[in-house]
């Protein structure tokens, strides 16, 4: 019978990742290079998040894995079952019961607490990459706090469109120093990044780890006369009626019908379990509930 070492990774690999995590916490928002390993899923499928989770898990943890807010999509299920198998940890879909939450591209609606760790899957860790493709250049820009290029991009959005058009992966400034990519979470989620839990970020293909300690200042980039707006669709959730959660738009027929539902499946299910209901499918195309 073959058994995996606890949490799949070998101990030297865990130590390497753990050292990177500690340096990342000591320099919030700075991207620490790490020797990303081959994992049992291809690059682009969450290997960075999986490596961080594997390096931090204890047998006593309760693990939640979400993908765009949902516990039940293929990759969330697959990663959750992977850790149940190689670490023997309890798994859960309830945000408030989890001690470690691995997430792709959302922060849970339920506020996180001191005993929790949020592990983000990150595709492109460098917030300046779409403006400057060269790593030595972006590394030097961070060293010099030379972020003018990013401010120009935001300014040009306002000049052309009247507002910043970045709606996800909205850049933030951490403790007034490093500009950081929060991963492709919706801009709506950015204010949640000032929280009581520890936030760890893993990019497997790009081989970078970064971190935000609790109670850390995380400010979305903006201008005094054009302050940051965390946008969401104006509707309420068709299933549970929530007016303050991030919504997914679901096409329901080929005549333009659509409904808006909470992206966070556990949040929505919890509200429905408490008897809260939304307008349902009766909302016609184009209506604002």
């Amino acid at each position: 019978m073959t058994e995996y070492g606890f949490a799949y990774l070998d101990e030297p690999t865990k130590r390497m990742i753990r050292r990177a995590l500690l340096k990342a916490l000591a320099v919030p928002g700075y991207q620490v290079p790490f020797a990303s390993r081959e994992m049992p899923m291809p690059y682009g499928w969450g290997t960075g998040g999986v490596q961080v989770t594997a390096a931090i898990l204890m047998p006593e943890d309760r693990l939640k894995v979400i993908d765009q807010g949902a516990d039940d999509t293929t990759n969330a299920v697959s990663i959750r079952r992977f850790f149940a198998r190689v670490a023997g940890v309890e798994t859960t879909t309830a945000t408030e019961d989890a001690t470690v939450i691995q997430t792709r591209h959302r922060i849970p609606e339920t506020p996180l607490s001191e005993g929790q760790i949020l592990v983000y899957q990150v595709p492109i860790p460098e917030p300046l990459r779409f403006l400057e493709p060269r790593e030595p250049e972006t590394r030097r820009m961070h060293a010099l706090e030379e972020y003018g290029l990013m401010h120009v991009k935001l300014y040009e959005d306002i000049a052309r469109h009247g507002r910043v058009t970045t709606s996800y992966a909205y850049p933030v400034r951490v403790e007034g120093h490093y500009v950081m990519d929060p991963s492709p979470i919706p801009a709506f989620d950015n204010p949640k990044m000032e929280m009581d839990a520890i936030q760890l970020f893993g990019a497997g293909r790009e081989q970078r780890i970064y971190a935000i300690p609790p109670h850390t200042k995380v400010v979305s980039l903006d201008f005094d006369d054009h302050p940051f707006e965390p946008g969401r669709a104006p509707q309420t959730c068709a299933l549970c009626g929530a007016a303050d959660s991030y919504l997914d738009e679901v096409v329901t027929d080929d005549a333009g019908g659509r409904m808006f539902v909470c992206s966070d499946t556990d949040f929505c299910g919890g509200r429905r379990a408490r008897g809260l209901r939304g307008p349902g499918l009766s909302v016609a195309a184009g209506d604002v509930a």
């Binding site: 606890f6 949490a7 101990e11 865990k14 753990r18 995590l21 500690l22 916490l25 000591a26 390096a55 931090i56 898990l57 204890m58 047998p59 006593e60 520890i198 971190a211 300690p213 609790p214």
Partner: peptide, 13 residues
């Protein structure tokens, strides 16, 4: 080692 690391992580955070 995992439990010890979590304590160190918590302390550094």
């Amino acid at each position: 080692g995992a439990r010890a690391f979590r304590a160190i992580l918590d302390a550094m955070a």
